[in-house]
Simulated scan of single mutants.
Amino acid sequence: MEVEVKLRLPDSETYKTLISHLSPFHIRTHNQHNNFFDGVSGQLSAHRAVLRIRFYNDQPATKCVLCLKAKAVLVDGISRVEEDEEEIDPSIGRECLADPKRLGVLAESSRIMKRVKDEFFDDELQFVCLGGFKNLRNVYDWKGLMIEVDETSFEFGTLYEIECESSEPEKAKELIQEFLKENGVSYSDSVASKFAIFRSGKLP
């Protein structure tokens, strides 16, 4: 179970103000490209599940991670979702992106794709690519919290968001809120996941 604090920033100026205040705590930056898939008959979405291939186009190398998420709940800026991740060869990820049928073949070698086959499909594994979006993620180590500040580029607009995974999300949220208020950074609770926003075709 992945548990995260998720807070939305209203605009690019607020985003720039926040990363300026956090700059002494910066540890890394990720350039992510997220791509989503479903069965041709919507087998995954029918069970509130999401299959994602994420490329990390960072220097000096590209990494590729296959991820299955399910049963996401987002309440009062705290997200809870069942998540399973597995790193795969970037060349295989690119093949799946070019030809989603390649995902079905992965069921023979991938733990996650075997799960997808066993849990969501009664017949042949056939997939479609739903599209995706790019995300620039700056990561900060602040007061023992790993804070991620995202600039997410959709075709219909840009979202700015803070994420922080924690086993004590209420406590982490309180600390982050205090920091934001002290530095005059406006924010609100996130009301939808990035995938839900992507599927809706508009910013919340």
Rank of each mutant, 00 (worst) to 15 (best):
K6A: 09
K6E: 07
K6N: 11
R8D: 14
S12V: 14
E13V: 15
Y15Q: 12
S23H: 12
S23V: 07
P24E: 02
H30E: 08
N35H: 10
F36H: 10
G42N: 08
G42R: 06
L44G: 06
L44T: 07
A46L: 11
N57K: 09
N57H: 09
D58A: 05
P60L: 03
K63C: 03
L66D: 04
C67F: 04
K69H: 09
K71P: 06
A72R: 09
I78K: 08
S79G: 11
D84A: 11
I88V: 01
D99Y: 13
K101Y: 06
G104I: 05
L106I: 14
S109F: 03
S110M: 07
R111D: 06
R115E: 14
F120D: 14
L125K: 11
Q126G: 09
F133K: 08
N138G: 15
D141W: 03
M146Q: 12
I147T: 06
E148H: 13
E148Q: 12
E148L: 07
F156G: 07
Y160A: 10
C164M: 01
S166T: 02
K171V: 12
L175W: 00
F179V: 07
K181Y: 05
G184R: 09
V185D: 04
D189E: 05
S193F: 04
K194N: 10
F195Q: 11
A196S: 15
I197V: 15
F198V: 05
R199F: 00
K202R: 15
L203M: 05
L203F: 00
